[in-house]
Computed example of a mutant assay.
Amino acid sequence: MNRPRVALLLGLLLWLAGCANGAHRLPYDSWRLGLFAPNYMEVWIETADAVDVQDHVFRRAMSGIAAINTPKNLKGDPRGWPERPGAGAGKQILGADLPRLLYVRWQSLVEPQTYEAYIVIPETTRRAMVKGEKAFCQADAKWVTDYRKMLSIGLAPGGIARVWLMGPCLSAIDVARVQGTVVKEGPYEGTSGGQHRPLSPTSKAYIEKYGIPYGSW
C-alpha cells in the first residue's frame, strides 16, 4: 500500500476516533446550537463556533439569519426576553462532546454594529445536559425521559448575548448573560468596507417609530 493511501486511512481512523470520543459518549447523538433576536432587532450571524471539552473546534457551526418575529403591524414587543425562549435558528453539532466554549460574531443590523462574544459554558450546565428527566410532552401527550440538549442564544442590540439550556419537553435553564465587545475591524472582519447587511423595511419602520429599547435585555 502506498504512503498517501496509508496517510489517508490513518487520518480517517483518527477522525472516527474523535467522533467516538465525542457524541458517542453522550446519551444522545448530538446537541443543538440555536440563535434568535428580539422582535424587529434583526441580527446576521457571521459565525457561531463551538469548542467541546475535548478541545475539538467546530467552526461556523451556525451562520446566517437569527430567528426573529417582525409583525408588519408593528405591534410586536422587543423588550426583555421570553419566559421560555425558542430554540432559535440553528444546527445540530455532530461529533461533539459537551460544550466548553461558544464564540459568536454577529451584525446588529438596527444599530448597525458588529459584535463578538465569548461564552464560557459552566460545569453545572454540562452536568444538566446529561441528566435525564421525566417530562410530559404536550406534542404527543406522552411521558418521556428527556434531556436538555439544546443551547439557545439570544442576541440583542448593545452586544448582549443571553444563553439558555433547554430540552424539547423540559423547561429552560438560564446559563449566562454576556456583554459582547465591538469588532474594531467592522463587519466581515473588515472585508466589506464597513457595510453591514441591509435592514428589512418592517424593522426599519419599527426603529424609526419606537427606537431601540436599550437596557431591557
Rank of each mutant, 00 (worst) to 15 (best):
S216F: 02
Y210K: 14
R148K: 15
Q195Y: 00
D146L: 02
S216K: 03
G167N: 11
V163A: 11
V178T: 14
E185Q: 11
V183A: 12
D140F: 03
C169N: 12
T191W: 01
S192T: 15
W217Q: 07
Y206C: 04
G167F: 00
G180C: 10
R177E: 15
G215E: 14
C169L: 02
M166G: 05
G180Y: 00
M166C: 10
I173F: 03
K142A: 13
V178F: 11
A156D: 05
G158R: 08
K142Y: 01
A141N: 11
G154F: 00
M150R: 06
W217Y: 12
I207Q: 13
S171L: 02
W143I: 15
D146M: 02
T202S: 07
M150C: 06
S192R: 08
G215N: 12
V183W: 07
A172L: 10
R197F: 07
V182Y: 02
G158Y: 01
Y214T: 11
K204S: 13
G158M: 07
G194I: 11
G167P: 09
R162K: 10
V144W: 00
A161R: 01
I212N: 10
R197T: 09
G167Y: 00
Y210V: 07
A172V: 10
G215D: 12
G193I: 13
V183E: 03
W164G: 05
L170P: 12
S203D: 13
Y147L: 08
W217L: 04
K149D: 15
E185R: 05
T191I: 09
V182D: 09
I153C: 01
R148V: 06
P213S: 07
G194V: 09
I160V: 15
T145L: 08
S200H: 03
G158H: 06
I153D: 01
Y210G: 11
G159S: 08
S152L: 05
I212G: 05
G167V: 08
A156V: 13
S192G: 11
L170V: 15
S200N: 09
P213Q: 07
H196A: 07
V183L: 13
L165A: 14
R177K: 12
G190D: 08
G190K: 00
W217F: 14
I212E: 07
G154R: 04
A156F: 00
P157G: 12
V178Q: 08
V144Q: 14
G180R: 02
D140N: 15
S203H: 05
V178N: 08
V178E: 13
R148E: 09
D140C: 14
G211V: 09
S152R: 01
A156R: 04
V163Y: 03
Y188D: 15
P187W: 00
Y214P: 12
L151P: 03
G159Y: 01
G215K: 07
Y210F: 12
P201L: 07
T181G: 06
P201M: 09
I160S: 08
R197E: 14
L151I: 15
V183D: 15
A176T: 13
M166T: 10
D174I: 14
G154Y: 01
Q195T: 10
W164R: 05
V182N: 04
Q195M: 03
I153H: 01
I160C: 03
E208M: 05
G211C: 13
A205I: 03
L199K: 09
I212L: 06
D146F: 00
